[in-house]
């Protein structure tokens, strides 16, 4: 792979990472900790929303984030011909 292609591949990877880690930060440190008190004013079923994010929601989002990453990277690898097949 040429240097330019390589740079492009890497910067796309970094862009994916910043999107996914941004979400990661917002749901855990944001919704679960920093804004938990404000979100607690919203009630979903028997849960206060801030509490729910801290003890449930953040974990579900973590799982989804990894699988989104897997899908994006597999596609990117193919596009740039650096996959393992």
């Amino acid at each position: 792979m040429s240097d330019n292609k390589m740079k492009e591949y890497w910067s796309k990877n970094l862009r994916y990472l910043s999107i996914l880690l941004g979400v990661w930060f917002i749901v855990s440190y944001g919704c679960g900790i920093l804004f938990a008190d404000a979100l607690n004013n919203i009630q979903i079923g028997g849960f206060k929303l801030g509490f729910w994010f801290a003890q449930q929601g953040a974990i579900y989002v973590f799982v989804v984030l990894i699988f989104v990453y897997v899908a994006w990277m597999n596609k990117l690898d193919k596009e740039y011909g650096v996959d393992e097949d």
Partner: peptide, 9 residues
């Protein structure tokens, strides 16, 4: 809960 799961991301 978050600490011991978030690290996997």
């Amino acid at each position: 809960l978050m600490g011991w799961t978030g690290g996997y991301v």
